[in-house]
Design a protein around this nucleic acid. Structure first.
Lengths: 219, 219
DNA sequence: CACCGGCATTCAGGTTGTTGGCATGGTCGG
DNA sequence: CCGACCATGCCAACAACCTGAATGCCGGTG
């Protein structure tokens, strides 16, 4: 895996880099927020980001949000000297996926990073390598990544949960509108269309096939 | 899972619906036998049916048999106010798979429903090695698989529900057009032909034999 | 408060797969 | 050998679906 690190303290940076190297991962490191924005944009292939919250030039949460709006969907682990619940929550609010208070055990960091990187169906190992990130509503394949809207994401999640199998329209609706809202049939098609557009905007190898009169399936 | 419930008592209906929702299942509910026949036909994707025996307009066992001959193969749990052994046996005789006496514990109902749902996943009880999947309208044999259209699927389901036995033309019609539509005799042949074509496009070992003047039979 | 941008929803029109039925030719039973 | 029944190929109508664009609905911003 390729891990992106944004951390101003050189000691921690080197420590983490070495440990990741031992664990078999590559590391790309940034010293501050500005560098992070350059290195970890949407075209960067990092699998997981490790982000210090207390950066010299900015707040790691702001950097993360900037990266998100630039299209970066990789999961993020925040590092911070502050251990309060409030900070933890604001970390998640900023689109973070995990949180670790300094001082931390390097092994724990590695474990969490690897867990995030693995995330994707453990059961139905989908052959496409399409990874959905619930924290950010982002999806990524080998060839790119893109952010989905909440409804788009729920809908796609329902379909990818059974790759290769047909998912009924009714099921897709139940997943996309959990409150049981009644929507025009056409609305479903509109969403499917936009998802398809986004899928192939990142050159994804997977496609959503429609099975007339039944539903959709991931191929 | 998609659970179909047929129960006239609104209290029980709501109770069960909510509980199923909590357990992560979708629910489709019918108030009486007639509605059940419309909602839970062969093209319905229900994974398990919960059927009250004491319905206002009919007997749940009769409804179940009607659904069976319409090609519905999902397992059924019967609910009843009567707890006698006799009723229990007649429930099994009607093609039921489990039995629960009122008043019942909702947790127990959920447990049984889930057990049945897991047990017969791609449901079809036919010995020929042909597997029908109601959720996807797909059929599979050792040698391959195809997707059928909704009408094709209902028709084939009716025939495979009695492998080896002759199914009358009128029975096939009733299964394929549950709304009681009147169709040209020739239309049946057209569909049979399409099904046959798809069957041998996957090199299926089973074939549909026509019994002149009577109907069809799976061999 | 007016404006803007993103999201959800709906509409209208074109496109395609499914249906149901026709015409034709074959096959079976008497 | 004839009529009833079934198989086959084909086509028109329809419903399901796709597509592009317009509308309404917030939450944030100047």
């Amino acid at each position: 895996m390729l891990i992106g690190i944004c951390e101003d303290d050189p000691t921690i940076r080197r420590l983490v880099s070495q440990a990741m190297g031992f664990a078999g991962h590559e590391v790309l490191s940034a010293h501050n927020g500005g560098e992070a924005l350059r290195l970890f944009g949407a075209d960067s292939a990092v699998d997981v980001l490790v982000m210090d919250i207390g950066l010299p030039d900015s707040d790691g949460r702001d950097v993360t949000q900037a990266l998100r709006s630039a299209g970066q969907v990789a999961p993020v682990v925040f590092l911070t000297a502050l251990g309060s619940v409030h900070d933890k929550l604001s970390g998640f609010g900023a689109g973070g996926d995990d949180y670790l208070a300094k001082p931390f055990d390097v092994k724990e960091l590695i474990a969490r990073v690897e867990a995030l990187g693995r995330r994707g169906r453990p059961t139905s190992h989908d052959p496409s390598g399409l990874v959905l990130n619930p924290a950010t509503h982002g999806i990524r394949s080998e060839s790119g990544q893109v952010l989905l809207t909440p409804t788009e994401f729920r809908m796609l999640a329902a379909i990818t949960s059974r790759p290769g199998e047909v998912v009924r329209r009714r099921t897709v609706v139940a997943a996309a509108w959990p409150d049981g809202a009644v929507v025009n049939e056409n609305t479903i098609d509109s969403f499917i269309r936009r998802i398809r557009t986004k899928l192939d905007s990142i050159g994804s190898p997977v496609t959503i096939q429609t099975v007339r009169g039944v539903g959709f399936r991931l191929l």
